[in-house]
Design a protein around this nucleic acid. Structure first.
Lengths: 222, 222
DNA sequence: CATATAGCTGACCGCTAGTCATTTCAAGGT
DNA sequence: ACCTTGAAATGACTAGCGGTCAGCTATATG
């Protein structure tokens, strides 16, 4: 007896409900990767899944709660991959490159990270928000542990590095979220500007500066 | 004879039209400071001004074009104040503090900067977007000039500093855009987390790391 | 087979950005 | 002083949004 809930069958047990919720999340992520944050509509999501719009609201209180959940999942997914990359010691540059590569490879993580605080968190119930922050805290700690050995830093330094990398990641990848522009239509100086904000070198160079800065500060202050 | 266009009088000359456009912008900024980006609606803006919604669209093509214009204005306003602060040489820490203080004092600048690339730029006609980028380029150059003498850097280093400060500013002030949370309702560890992302120390510490990093790199490479 | 429970539905609400046929105003020519 | 004319202003309208909830119906249980 399969406990999989077919479409248009009702989810009655807790397990079935969890499955349906996951099915919604999966469909939501696929749909999100197609159309992006702003064009993502609850009606279309429901149509894609083949359920009524109201049903979505049995599983998520708001559109933003879906995004918050997708964000959490992508945070865990990304950080697991990144953590796996940090088994050996490495230079801060390699560290930064691995971090960015793993983040950019996940189509969900960065677009949601960028919208987290000013959009997503504003329409989610407080307990859910707190829960999400706790997931975040746990992840930071987990990443900091491997960062400490990978970069040969103290745990406190590593925690500072990880938090700061998050901040830098948001700023440095901002340019990737701009509209797709046909280069032909742009004056040379604007093309140059856009090129100079290319997220990869921007992130890596400044990550190195920050990590080495953190390394030096504590070396002197001891 | 005053050339001021009273409400409900028609703007016929180019000058009168420019005046009306400015009046719309002023009202838009006041309204934006009241309700923020997401709650800002064109109908309410029109009501506030006492004109019909359609009239707004004679002066701006889209809601986002209004925001782009307010962003440009706030960029110029902020940078003029910041530039004025940079008449003497100073440490990178003082530099960073002055930069952030001027930015945070302007209620318009940071919220629009944060939304610029992933929201505002996506609904503005290309020529207007190019124009805005050119304003940005000119501002970066102007700030870089005074930065070079203020921090005793080369022009190339100063340009790198200015661009990077923009990136860091976006990342570091992200937390200020989260929902207003009543501290009492939060578990201690979440309160600590939020405190650890306080934008002011976050920005200043990392600005110093980056500026000193840039200073050292070129010192060695010469 | 009847009943009660609860998952599911979709019409509906109040709102949004943006459009455009129509109205209105006022300057310029006579 | 009046008329013509062009453009500024209008606001009803469209299509679509997130979210709600009274009513429908599938299904587990007695």
């Amino acid at each position: 007896m399969s406990s999989v809930v077919a479409i248009n069958q009702r989810a009655r047990t807790a397990e079935q409900k969890a499955q349906r919720r996951n099915a919604v999340l999966e469909a939501a992520e696929t749909y999100f990767l197609e159309v992006g944050y702003e064009a993502f509509s609850m009606s279309n999501l429901a149509k894609n899944i083949g359920i009524a719009k109201g049903t979505l609201y049995l599983y998520f209180e708001t559109r933003e709660e879906i995004f918050l959940t997708l964000y959490e999942q992508s945070l865990v997914r990304w950080s697991d991959i990144f953590i796996d990359d940090l088994r050996e010691t490495m230079t801060s540059q390699v560290y930064a490159r691995k971090l960015l590569t793993a983040a950019a490879a996940d189509g969900t993580f960065l677009p949601l990270l960028i919208r987290l605080e000013h959009l997503i968190e504003h329409n989610v119930a407080l307990p859910r928000l707190i829960q999400s922050k706790q997931v975040f805290i746990a992840r930071v700690e987990k990443i900091a542990k491997v960062t400490a050995s990978s970069l040969e830093l103290s745990e406190a330094q590593a925690t500072e590095v990880v938090k700061t990398m998050g901040v830098l990641l948001i700023g440095a990848t901002q340019g990737d979220q701009g509209p797709a522009l046909d280069e032909e239509d742009l004056p040379q100086e604007v093309q140059d500007l856009i090129a100079s904000f290319s997220s990869k070198p921007l992130f890596i160079k400044n990550a190195v500066r920050i990590i080495e800065g953190i390394r030096m500060e504590t070396a002197f202050s001891i």
